[in-house]
Amino acid sequence: MVPQIAPTFLDNCLTRNEWICGRYYSTRSEELRAAVIQHLGIVLASVALGLLVAVPLALLARRYRRLEGIIVGTTTAIYTIPSLALFSLLVPFTGLGPRTVLIGLGLYSLTILVRAILDGLASVPADVRESALGVGYGARTLLWRVEIPLALPAFMSGLRVATVSAVALTTVGSILDYGGLGDLILEDATFKAQVLAGSVLCVALAVTLDVVLVLVQRLLTPWARSAAPRRKAVAA
């Protein structure tokens, strides 16, 4: 009779394909860390890229009302293109590589950010603007000292949406082998421990970035904290 030694040797949570597997985390920690770093890099770079284009576009749209419809309309149209299709339509121009993922995700951020900047600037009360002009503010000081601070809350909420959705959309980048945690999830769709780890880390990354942005917003708008209770007291 053949002695049964094989099971004790090969039997672990990886070979049993279990959802939660300590061995997976201990043997693949390097891979996981690399995926998280790549994911974070893609998100930050694409949102920064979106922001870089969104600011001048939004200011242009505000300056020239006729352009506003075109800019908002075009960016909204881009947003309705599905991520997989957007990447695909970019491929002929940007190639089968990281560039396509970054530009594609940047375009999505752009849409949200242009809207957020315009909404933010529109939310500045006209009488505040008027009184600033009345006390002698020029166009530039008005923008920096009055309009931008007051537009911050709406802008920051847009930035949060853009960042969080970039985290989710980055996974689709794995079609171009550049999807951060998405690469882990799609590498082997039957590998339970890895699919779960990739998914959980992806959500955790989104939540972390969102919390960081909320904290940044609080630091940038200290008056909002003290103003909120006062407003409530008036209402009561």
């Binding site: 949060r160 949406v161 969080v164 959705s165 985290v167 989710a168 959309l169 996974t171 689709v172 794995s174 999807g179 945690l181 998405g182 999830i185 799609l186 769709a189 039957t190 339970k192 699919v195 779960l196 990739g198 998914s199 992806c202 959500v203 989104a206 939540v207 969102d210």
Partner: peptide, 22 residues
């Protein structure tokens, strides 16, 4: 906003690997 944050790739993989099968 919550909907935007959920990675569909992850959700679909988890679903087809567990409760709903492939």
């Amino acid at each position: 906003n919550i909907g935007r944050a959920v990675p569909i790739v992850a959700m679909l993989s988890l679903f087809s690997l567990s409760v709903f099968g492939s």
